[in-house]
């Protein structure tokens, strides 16, 4: 007798836990063949708010972790992705990718995670400065994370678009709330499972599925969100983000990129989610001694 498959219940990811949406709602996206992808959570405003709370709570600990440790954790994500490679490929194919496309997307996602893992303990060195002020002070500038970042993933990919945005955000010590692709949500949730088993503290990345139209507003208008990242080119969304940023001066970054390109990754995507902090301290200068002999 043929064995009956165990189907997976796709959930959302908030504060390191996998609840279904508090609203109890769901939707059933179809693939090109008309097959149902699953009963996917149609997340609500309340889910957005819960995610922001979780992300804020996680921010202090994540941002103050040693950069080296963040790098290790990002590398661990890559390891876990590698281990689950076949599952991601299957999901991508089920959602409509060809096998070659799917393999490329997963490989690229893994490599991208490794790329940003390496940046964790280097970007402040490259981007920071010691400023030679004219007065008797020691003065330096370094990059520090912005805080809680809202992410609107680009709609036409399931994994690479999401990984390309999330990796630089968390590499830089931020926490985030991700609105996943509505039509291609499967890899986003499986990616959450990867995060959950990679020593990424709960709340650092929160992933919601559903109608982005419904979630963008409460996310961008949330007063405890410091920045928004959008990985697509929909002009209406760009304007909506920029307008609601006027509420609390959120930092808005939008990228119109082909994330499947190998070079769609760089240092500046990390600095886009950073603030420059400059510190001054006086240098005692009393006697006449100099540093020459």
């Amino acid at each position: 007798m043929e064995r009956l498959n165990v189907l997976k219940t796709y959930k959302i990811y908030i504060g390191g836990k996998f609840p279904r949406t508090e609203s109890g709602r769901f939707y059933t996206p179809l693939n090109k063949k008309g097959e149902q992808l699953g009963h996917i959570c149609l997340s609500s405003r309340k889910d957005v708010r819960n995610s922001v709370v979780a992300a804020r709570k996680a921010f202090g600990g994540w941002s103050e972790r040693a950069a080296f440790n963040r790098g290790q954790i990002l590398y661990r994500i890559a390891e876990m992705l590698e281990g689950r490679k076949s599952q991601f490929i299957e999901e991508l194919i089920f959602q409509g990718s060809t096998k070659a496309q799917a393999e490329k997307e997963v490989n690229l996602s893994i490599d991208r995670m490794v790329y940003y893992a390496g940046w964790c303990d280097k970007y402040t060195q490259v981007l920071g400065s010691i400023n030679p002020v004219a007065s008797s002070h020691f003065n330096f500038s370094m990059h520090v994370p912005q805080g809680v970042i809202g992410v609107i993933a680009e709609n036409s990919t399931s994994l690479i678009g999401l990984v390309s945005l999330v990796a630089p955000i968390i590499a830089g010590g931020n926490t985030c709330i991700v609105v996943a692709s509505k039509e291609l949500p499967l890899c986003a949730i499986t990616f959450a499972e990867v995060l959950n088993s990679s020593d990424v503290p709960g709340g650092v990345v929160n992933i919601l599925t559903g109608e982005s139209k419904e979630m963008i507003k409460p996310l961008t208008e949330h007063m405890d969100v410091n920045g928004m990242i959008y990985g697509g080119s929909n002009k209406k969304i760009v304007q909506q983000l920029r307008e609601s940023a006027a509420l609390n001066l959120k930092r808005i970054q939008t990228y119109d990129e082909d994330w499947m390109k190998e070079d769609a990754q760089n240092l500046y995507m990390i600095s886009d989610c950073q603030e420059v902090k400059t510190t001054w301290h006086p240098i005692e200068n009393i006697g006449g001694a100099t540093s020459s002999y």
Partner: peptide
């Protein structure tokens, strides 16, 4: 905060970046 003055205050210099976090602008 974008600028931290330790044991000093209100110091400015052309080489020193100035600007704020949150609602102090970007």
């Amino acid at each position: 905060a974008g600028v931290i003055w330790a044991n000093t205050y209100n110091k400015f210099d052309p080489t020193s970046p100035f600007g704020g976090f949150k609602e102090s602008g970007f």
